[in-house]
Simulated scan of single mutants.
Amino acid sequence: MENIFSIQTEQEFLAAALETFRYQYENVEVYRRFVDYLNIDPEKVDRLANIPFLPIEMFKNHQILDKNSEAGLFFQSSGTTKMNLSKHFIADENKYEESIYWSFEQFIGKPEDFIFLGLLPSYLERQNSSLIYMVDYLMKKSGRPENGYFLYNHEDLFNLLSTLGDKKVILFGVSFALLDFIDYCGSRQSSGSLNASENLVVIETGGMKGRKEEMTKDELLKILQEGFKTDKIYSEYSMTELLSQAYSLGNNEYECPNWMKIMIRNAEDPFNYEKEGRTGAINIIDLANIHSCSFIATQDLGKAVGDKFQVLGRIDHSDIRGCSLLVS
């Protein structure tokens, strides 16, 4: 396989995607059985729209792993102990770390230039979180002594943000925890408001189900902008079953790194795709997922906006995921 992180053109992406499809058909048993069940001849698949996308629910009941690989760890989706949770078995941690690094650099900057803070209580309180692995890795690359996580100790986070001066700071936060922190900052007005660095970037990672009253993503971003006194409220879109991340730098519109692509399928007909601006279900090609499955049909709704995309909620009757994004 060529280096997916060097992909620059649509032609290069297509070639890499078709090569990956044929490799996974031959070497990932669950995916091969799925393609055969659809009675699709892999030799006749010559464009992205012909590639079968594996339903994401398959990660709940099957080990989806290249037969030539062994998994050193797995990531598990969030949810209650009573739920049947997805597991993503990871054969190549280095591939995940490369994806984290180059995606972050493409959209935000070199990780070495930032202090990383994590307000991710629901993820810190469970094991096998791909999000915590990602933030851990970015902290390691940064190597700054100020790096750290916060559970519900809002005062400590408030005090730290107020002392970082003009340093570049990334705050990763789950949505409900960021709102709780904003409420805490508001309660301190009599003793001083938050005086964070002008270089603070807040990256919300979704996560509101069962925690707070639902609101649109635009409403959330506006509250966070006012609370943190910054326009730099970004969003990250990924999930347990992926090894790559898309980022939104504003307007609730996400961009994929060069080795990842979003396709909007018709929610009723999975082999028909919607035109730009029309809502459908999100299919994801993640070429970093070489030892698992790179072609995943999610239960998220979205629409294409030029070369970007929006996430608009969940398909009705699908399982509620702990990392589900706010309806936009």
Score class of each variant (00 low, 15 high):
residue 22 R to G: 09
residue 23 Y to S: 07
residue 23 Y to M: 05
residue 26 E to G: 04
residue 27 N to R: 15
residue 30 V to Y: 05
residue 32 R to C: 03
residue 33 R to D: 12
residue 34 F to G: 02
residue 35 V to Y: 05
residue 37 Y to S: 14
residue 47 R to C: 13
residue 50 N to F: 01
residue 51 I to V: 11
residue 60 K to H: 05
residue 66 D to H: 12
residue 73 L to P: 01
residue 79 G to K: 00
residue 81 T to K: 08
residue 83 M to I: 02
residue 89 F to W: 15
residue 91 A to P: 03
residue 96 Y to F: 14
residue 101 Y to M: 07
residue 106 Q to P: 00
residue 107 F to M: 02
residue 114 F to N: 15
residue 122 S to A: 14
residue 125 E to T: 11
residue 128 N to G: 03
residue 131 L to R: 03
residue 134 M to S: 06
residue 161 L to Y: 09
residue 169 V to H: 03
residue 172 F to S: 11
residue 173 G to T: 11
residue 174 V to M: 07
residue 174 V to L: 07
residue 175 S to Q: 05
residue 180 D to M: 13
residue 193 S to C: 05
residue 196 A to R: 11
residue 218 D to M: 09
residue 222 K to T: 15
residue 224 L to V: 03
residue 224 L to C: 05
residue 224 L to Y: 03
residue 241 E to G: 02
residue 251 N to Y: 06
residue 251 N to V: 00
residue 252 N to V: 08
residue 255 E to I: 01
residue 256 C to I: 06
residue 270 P to N: 11
residue 282 I to L: 02
residue 284 I to C: 02
residue 287 L to T: 12
residue 290 I to K: 13
residue 300 D to F: 03
residue 303 K to E: 11
residue 307 D to R: 11
residue 310 Q to T: 04
residue 310 Q to R: 14
residue 315 I to W: 04
